[in-house]
Amino acid sequence: MTARPNVTITKRDEWVAVCKLSDIVPDTGVCALVHGRQVALFRLHDDSVYAIDNLDPFSKANVLSRGIVGDMKGELVVASPIYKQHFNLLTGQCLEDADVRVAAHAARVDGDTVSVKIN
């Protein structure tokens, strides 16, 4: 087993279908493997979907998809389950530390299919 293979991006600008909308419990996230990259994919109560990197930059663990989603001061966020920093679901910006941002990716629902495009 090799260490951390998931940081190389092979293809961009391409929508990849990853799962059905019903595969995600509303207001929770799942992790999708997109071109070898781990993407945290969230479905909110209104069936809108958001995608950011799954790697938590603080703990270096692939866990952001397992965080609690919600809103803080009007921003849609997920809280890292390890040290509880919040990340904006649209931009990947960390709310507690202006210097930290995870990559945000495009996500869409087409019928019952959820797709992600790596940015």
């Binding site: 998931n6 990853v18 799962c19 419990v25 992790c31 999708a32 493997l33 781990q38 692939n62």
Partner: peptide, 18 residues
């Protein structure tokens, strides 16, 4: 039980766990 997978679209484990 459906939720107990690392990836929603793959049965692979998280290769970052070493």
């Amino acid at each position: 039980l459906k939720r107990f997978h690392h990836f929603v679209n793959s049965d692979a484990p998280d290769s970052n766990v070493v």
